[in-house]
Amino acid sequence: MAGDAGSIPELDQKKYDADEQVKIICLGDSAVGKSKLMERFLMDEYRPQQLSTYALTLYKHTATVGNKTVAVDFWDTAGQERFQSMHPSYYHKAHACIMVFDVQRKITYKNLANWYKELREYRPEVPCCVVANKIDADLKVTQRSFNFGKKQGLPFYFVSAADGTNVVKMFREMIKRAVDYKQNPGDFMDEVMQELENFDLEKKEDNSEADEDGLKAESPDLV
């Protein structure tokens, strides 16, 4: 089942190996506002490519990081979250992950733990952040601290796709982290070691590709 990771025929995921290409995935429950966040960040550039067969939406973006031009593919679910789990190809070669919950719905916050667990099964070391969306509904939530992800050192953002608060900042920082990670995955080895303890992954090699290959051999359903 996991062996066909990356085998979506319309999508050649090999391109994500090129220096100037990064893949950033969005995770989170239905209706937390993932697509609305993309739309707010991309504005006029917003031209989603629907791959409805795979319950997947792709957004292409060109960013400048330092003095380099980087092509960013954002992967968004189009209902695939309903299966409580994403197809392995969704995680394949991802360089960063944006996890979103709705501050008005506790269940979407609680479910972050499941999304994060699945992410780490496939991508033990990619940069990830936690995004609290819809703060425009009730600004008081920003006085509360949400501790999920603190232990793992994940950056946390209070955002609103409606009024735009912190949306652009969050995306820019995540693009930067995706590019940094791609250039130097070794910098994340400390984090990897920590996560290895947490998730008890076996057969981890120094080779940055090995995590993917190692994982493919295991069934992700076991953990």
């Binding site: 006085q143 509360r144 601290s145 209070f158 009024d163 735009g164 652009v168």
Partner: peptide, 17 residues
């Protein structure tokens, strides 16, 4: 477009969630 607000100073209360 790039609207930023810093909530890090106001965040204190522990979340019941």
């Amino acid at each position: 477009y790039d609207l930023e607000m810093d909530f890090s100073k106001t965040t204190q209360e522990k979340c019941s969630w």
